[in-house]
Design a protein around this nucleic acid. Sequence first.
DNA 1: CCTCCACCGGAAAGCCGGGTCA
DNA 2: TGACCCGGCTTTCCGGTGGAGG
Length: 411
Amino acid sequence: MIDSNIFEKMLRKNRIFKNRDVLRHSYTPEYLPHRKEQIESIASILLPALSGETPSNILIYGKTGTGKTATVKFVGKQLEEASRKMNVHCYVHYLNCEIIDTQYRVLATLAKALGRNVPMTGWPTDQVYEEVREAIDGKDQTVIIVLDEIDKLVKKGDDVLYNLSRINSELKNARVSLIGITNDLKFKNFLDPRVLSSLSEEEIVFPPYNATQLEDILAQRAELAFHDGVLDEGVIPYCAALAAHEHGDARKALDLLRISAEIAESREEEKVTKEHVREAVKKMERDNIVEVVRTLPNQSKIVLYSMILLHKNGKRKFITGEVYAVYKTLCKKVGMDVLTQRRVSDLLSELDMLGIINSIIISKGRYGRTREMRLDVPMDAVKEAILDDYRFEVLRDYEDRLLSSSLDMFD
DNA sequence: CCTCCACCGGAAAGCCGGGTCA
DNA sequence: TGACCCGGCTTTCCGGTGGAGG
């Protein structure tokens, strides 16, 4: 018997997604619900570009998932289209400063986008700047530079911003205007006041979406992303409500919808239900915690691992002294410095802040006052995240022995 | 009502790596 | 280059404390 092609078989099974990419962050939709106001203000600020004048610089604020990037990209596209029709030279260059995070890289990337051949490393910065300036001034044009996550750039020194914000005075034929995007309201404080005043000639704030608005966004994307009728009644409102509850983040809402659908898909079910959404929430929370654990300092990992062992030993609540005793033996096993109890106590309160453990300070009267805590995480996932570090591999082998010997002292 | 446990948590100082400036 | 500073982490020291047991 001949098996049919495995991909064909899988595709035939795929009754859920029509186009998964529509739900990804990188996708820029044709139409942005509930951003009319912002689109219009940006457009009206950029309008002079079409008549050969210099548009004001813009600074855009808004929490993650409020549509800042999508809106700017959208308006940028429209502007380039309009300019093409009107035979005006007007270009928008988009840079994400999270990735392109040094002065040199920003300039080099710009130079490349403008058609100059600049190596990604090696040249003196001045020379690259000069190259950029020449490339821009080479013809009568308006260049709009979008700096997304601009706060990331400022933390490494704001020379580029200073240079770019004054570039207009060195240009004869062309005009430059800047659009900075940030979700960090405090970043202004780190900025050179001269740069700030130039950069924030105009400021636009993107408010978070509410539940109804998120619903519209989801509905619009779902139309493109899914086959007809695969979404159960109530799935979209549910996702929207959950995301609205958490700061109105459209990105989160879309993730939620996508992951719910992926769960349904992996189980080869025909429909996406609210139950899938609930599981998606759990999965996202778990992934989140695992990520937090992974990036914990080593000492904290050991402290956390001590608690996991205690938990595995059948204890649901533990006090500082118990955790510290286990912690000490574990440290010796992995050959790490043993911190003082005072310090471990601080690490424990940090874990509490992160929501990895639940703890309260209680008094056991005669038996002292201490922190009583319990673990509040998906145990196995967290354990794997810790053991992932090669230095802690050894703990896997010792686990049983630790359980049977050194933990006996705490009943 | 007093004691005293087992730790909490503030203060201060030491250590260390990285960055700055003359 | 070395002197110096900064900030994060850690230790040392220690006063403080809620409540079970006496």
